[in-house]
Write a protein that binds this DNA or RNA. Sequence first.
DNA 1: AAATATTAATTCGCACACAAATTAATAATG
DNA 2: CATTATTAATTTGTGTGCGAATTAATATTT
Lengths: 167, 167
Amino acid sequence: MISDSGGKMEKHDELLVALRKVIRAIDLHSKQLERQVGLTGPQLLVMRAITRFNGAMVKEIADHTNLSPATITSILDRLQSRELVLRQRCTEDKRKVGVYLTDAGIKALQAAPQMLQEHFIRRFDDLKDWEQSLLVSSMQRLAAMMNAEQLDASPLLEIGQVDKPKL
Amino acid sequence: MISDSGGKMEKHDELLVALRKVIRAIDLHSKQLERQVGLTGPQLLVMRAITRFNGAMVKEIADHTNLSPATITSILDRLQSRELVLRQRCTEDKRKVGVYLTDAGIKALQAAPQMLQEHFIRRFDDLKDWEQSLLVSSMQRLAAMMNAEQLDASPLLEIGQVDKPKL
DNA sequence: AAATATTAATTCGCACACAAATTAATAATG
DNA sequence: CATTATTAATTTGTGTGCGAATTAATATTT
């Protein structure tokens, strides 16, 4: 039996624990989605990004979803093999690839439920406005604090503007 | 080019975006750790769990880390192949496997840095105490809200006590 | 004691997710 | 124009992560 052996946890460790639970909950939900509608969370995410601009390039999708191009490629492979998505090399610049939803893809996307449990969203939406804002800004603050370190050669960034490089 | 196309994002979408950034930051740090000290975040996590109770069973480690037994097994495989960890079947109940750190494992763990970026931790520790508590409790609240949905047959759970099943 | 159920761990198949290397095409420079 | 650099996407290799199926061992029931 593993006990907590009395060692009091640092606050940042508590943070990490909570974070892991959230991550796990999201992942479990994604797998649940996959069983129910045949689309995982990341797949839905990518399809939604495509929806926003039909014919988007891979890199644009990557920027928009905060995923790497390599990851996008593999997700697109699976979507394409199921004919939910269509790739078409750009004629003017043959390095680029335009990605489109097929009719089946559009239909699948429309049929898909929310990305988090409706219960969660409902519960979140039921919170008072200031509570929602507090949670959102807390997450954003954490993201900023973490992200700033990723770019380990840019000590000049201000906390308030770390996000979105250029979209 | 993907633009935000003016569609104002829902608050819960903003939340998810921030969450994804945090998740990504953690993952990137894990890969950075791997390059620097040869141990990923999850590997460190598992080794720490073992430290708390030498000879822990796989299931106990899984409970304690919020990971599935299958995941623990694969992580242990890699740790064992590098002789950082040792598996020994229990003699009384031969279904059970005790997991131990080797001397090399103990040394590697001691030499390993934190699982979150040190810059982040420093910055976090610099926050006022109430700010730290606010961030931690915000995350815990999210975890509770999301976790409650996972157990999709338990509408009775109160928000405040969803965590730790039994550890 | 024999049949059945439960439990622990592993194996298998799948889907991320990234960095690094590669390929192909375009842009910039001499 | 030829060489070099940059850019876009893919391929390759590694490491998570899970559920479902499997194997082996222990408990329970009949």
